[in-house]
């Protein structure tokens, strides 16, 4: 019984009430994953579970048993920043920095979804290849709230990363 968090196995907690969020923050001391509401409304606790974005506050730790979790701490390559992290700095895609890890994790997974052809509410051609546009990003990132108002910078940062990936 173990959960692989950023490549390191950590034991599944005895108490089945423990959320993946609390496991990460309080037991693994990986506090980069944030808590903004504990009820799935804000997206601050977004992490990648087997590469897909999930709200760790609504995920029980036991549900992650045997699976792989990537948090903001595990996104970069050692000391180097992940391109999305660098793009957020370049475009000032944050102020207080609290929703930021969730935004970045969501952004990384969201681009994969979009590029993998998963349509959204604003996708015109449901069968087509996903096209990265500001409108698509806004729709797909709307589950990650930001109160400082860094929305424009976040969208620009994601567009930059998408452009770099395409190049």
């Amino acid at each position: 019984m173990a959960i692989s968090v950023n490549g390191t196995d950590i034991p599944v907690p005895d108490d089945p009430r423990v959320s993946l969020l609390d496991l990460l923050r309080e037991r693994a001391h990986l506090t980069g994953t944030k808590v903004g509401c504990n009820q799935g409304a804000c997206g601050a606790c977004t992490v990648l579970l087997d590469g897909e974005r999930v709200l760790s506050c609504l995920t029980l730790a036991v549900q992650a048993d045997g699976r792989s979790v990537t948090t903001i701490e595990g996104l970069g390559d050692g000391a180097a920043l992940h391109p999305m992290q660098q793009a957020f700095i370049d475009h000032d895609g944050f102020q207080c920095g609290y929703c930021t890890p969730g935004q970045i994790c969501a952004a990384v997974a969201m681009l994969r979804e979009l590029q993998g052809g998963v349509p959204s509410y604003v996708t015109a051609d449901l069968a087509g290849q996903g096209t990265v546009t500001a409108e698509e990003i806004r729709e797909r990132m709307s589950g990650n709230l930001c109160r400082c108002g860094a929305h424009n910078g976040i969208v620009e940062a994601i567009l930059q990363v998408a452009k770099e990936q395409a190049a």
Binding site: T31, G32, I72, Q86, G97
Partner: peptide, 15 residues
């Protein structure tokens, strides 16, 4: 750019 940017984007800023 914000001097604390690298800390914030890596989840290292301690709240």
């Amino acid at each position: 750019s914000r001097l604390d940017g690298p800390q914030k984007v890596q989840g290292k800023a301690r709240f």
